[in-house]
């Protein structure tokens, strides 16, 4: 077992104290809660800067820039290639620095350039793949051959009545049927160019039920998620008490 030092106990106690500070909000808003909240924001900002500097800025910009400056100052090699590398490595830094123009109202408009650059690149990279992964593949997954669905259900019933065995193929087919019907009805609910009457109205009504069942499942999972986080904190508080016990050799 790892030895519990005074430093461990000190840090664990700080974390336990901050946990209790955050929990105190459940009673009502109070200075301890606000202290913990502000501390998280402040510490996170400082931590992000340090991590970004050490894991991103140095190896992705400072080092390549230094290498290209060094290569540029060396004799020999293609001047055009060396200049090209230098420009390629200077540009990201320059574009990034433009973000700081936001600090002054008169120059803040310049910061739109790097934002526009980033948005343009992101949209260009994301759009074709997004359509493929989140639209085409999802639509294709709903195009299930009806003969597969009903064939699976019929096969299961045949086996059940002929041999008395359960294969669950029926439920597989039934599940696929629910996916197809649920998808069509869900889309019908969001189709506003036709009045929700007759077949359209019926489909839209089924669509609402499908959506509600989906929301219910999400709500259930959300409750589990929140309880899990509470358990995580309780587990931490128990380990803190245990660490103090180990430190004091109780």
């Amino acid at each position: 077992m790892q030895e519990v030092t005074f430093g461990t106990v000190l840090w664990m106690t700080s974390a336990a104290f901050l946990t209790v500070c955050i929990f105190s909000f459940l009673y009502r808003d109070n200075p301890l809660y606000r202290f913990a909240e502000h501390l998280v924001v402040g510490v996170s900002a400082g931590y992000w800067i340090a991590i970004l500097y050490h894991t991103s800025l140095t190896d992705l910009w400072i080092e390549p820039l230094g290498a290209s400056i060094s290569a540029f100052s060396q004799p020999g090699g293609s001047f055009a290639a060396k200049t090209g590398m230098l420009v390629v490595n200077i540009m990201p830094g320059l574009i990034g620095l433009l973000m700081f123009s936001r600090f002054y109202s008169k120059t803040s408009w310049i910061s739109r350039w790097p934002i526009a650059f980033y948005l343009g690149v992101s949209a260009g990279v994301a759009l074709p793949l997004f359509l493929q992964s989140f639209v085409v593949r999802q639509v294709a997954a709903n195009m299930i051959n009806p003969s597969d669905i009903f064939g699976a259900m019929a096969a299961d019933l045949t086996i059940l009545f002929s041999y008395g065995n359960i294969t669950f193929l029926f439920w597989q087919g039934f599940g696929e049927l629910i996916i197809v019907v649920g998808c069509i009805c869900g889309l019908a609910y969001f189709y506003f160019s036709a009045e929700h009457k007759g077949i359209m109205g019926g489909a839209a009504k089924v669509g609402i039920w499908v959506l509600m069942i989906g929301f219910g499942a999400t709500f259930g999972y959300t409750v589990m998620s929140r309880i899990s986080l509470l358990i995580g904190r309780f587990n931490y508080l128990i380990s803190w008490v245990s660490a103090i016990g180990d430190f004091l050799r109780i």
């Binding site: 499942a217 999400t218 999972y221």
Partner: peptide, 11 residues
């Protein structure tokens, strides 16, 4: 994924 996200990814 976290439980909150799970239903989104069954698709």
């Amino acid at each position: 994924v976290t439980a909150v996200m799970a239903t989104d990814y069954y698709a």
